[in-house]
Simulated scan of single mutants.
Amino acid sequence: MKNTYISSVILLALSAACSAPPVDDLTMKKQKLDSVRTVMADLKETISQLEREIRDSDPAASLASSVLVKPVAIENKPFEHFIDVRGTVESRKNILLSAVTGGEIERVHVTEGQRVTKDQLLVSLDAAILRSSIAELKSSLDLAKTIFEKQEKLWKQNIGTEVQYLQAKNTKEGLEKKLNGAYAQLDQMLIKAPFSGTIDRVDALEGQMASPGLPLVRMVSQDDMYIKADVSEEFIGKLKTGDKAEVYFPVQDKKVSSIIASVGQVINPENRTFSVEVKLSGGVGVNPNQVTLVTLRDYVNNNTFSLPTKYIQRDNNGQFVYIVEMIHNQAHAKKAYIKIGQSFNGNTEILEGLVGSETVIGEGFRDLTDGAEITLATGAESKVAVN
């Protein structure tokens, strides 16, 4: 009678597959897989029932039909999920320097690859005319100071008029302001390093005309570098400042641990991503625009435990694992239906269905059916660790 039942189940599955309306190849394969799984589940239940009946009739057959299994050993730690995104090394000290005012380049004081310190002279423009004007202003200022000092002495002696005193004072102060302005203009003819770093590129050529905004020198520094990554908008709200991150540099074959420094709040309409900035400590030895692989933690649950994903199975009633059940001092396999969460790195988060005191079956689970008699491997772990 059981053979007739099994044959009927197989025929019904095949008939349903044959009578279904035309579908694409992938959908057909999925439907066929579901049908075969259903048949397999029914076959396992039938096998389990037959084994129980045989054991009841022939106790000597129990040991021979017992399946050797090994429980799962689970580490006691929070479940974490990570995502991998591509990132690039950025620097806040990666700048192009140009002249504020126009003029002929008189001298280039640095070369590519040279280390420089803050305020070191990089490029100087021809300032002969300006220096001549400064010399003339200094001469005029010296005369104005002399006249002012004499006029001030006379004024204190009540000699002369107040207008003469104020005119002398105004002439002196006006020349002082003009001289200060000339010195400021002279300083603009000298392009200096705004910070300590390395000269990455020199575009300036002696004798060339410099114009405002025309790049002359590129400077970089590794003192203020970070990793910038674009993350899909589906992870909005899952990443926050301070979350763990790991950065891998393929060129150096190096990994460094870090944290998220900031999370962008604007979605890029072109690729539907938002930017994430990861801290990068000094001394890593990388360069701006270098490509990296960034691993970001987007989920953590401190109050759960996980199981290896490969031990979780599915039937018509849902997902389950096999646990050990003792019946009359004999170990049996029992289906425990579970609700799972996320999966990562070969492990799956268990949300419901297990309390942690069960002995979950690992190795040997593929040969089991619900209620099958089992033998635990010698020395096997017999607990599931939980928080």
Rank of each mutant, 00 (worst) to 15 (best):
V23S: 06
L26H: 10
Q31E: 07
T38V: 10
A41Y: 12
T46M: 14
S48C: 13
P59I: 15
L63V: 10
K70P: 09
A73F: 11
H81K: 06
H81N: 12
F82R: 05
R86G: 14
G102L: 07
G103L: 13
V116Q: 02
S133G: 13
K145V: 14
K150L: 07
L154R: 13
K156V: 09
I159D: 09
Q164E: 11
K172E: 12
N180A: 15
A184T: 15
Q188F: 11
Q188H: 07
F195G: 05
Q208E: 15
L214I: 06
F235N: 03
G237V: 07
K244E: 12
P250R: 09
Q252G: 03
D253P: 10
K254H: 10
K255L: 15
Q265F: 05
V266C: 05
I267M: 09
E270A: 12
N271E: 11
R272N: 06
V284H: 13
V286G: 01
V286N: 01
V286L: 00
V294W: 02
N301C: 04
N302M: 06
Y311H: 03
R314H: 14
N316R: 15
V321F: 08
I327C: 04
K339P: 03
E358S: 08
G371L: 07
I374F: 09
T375V: 15
S382E: 13
S382R: 15
V384I: 14
N387T: 07
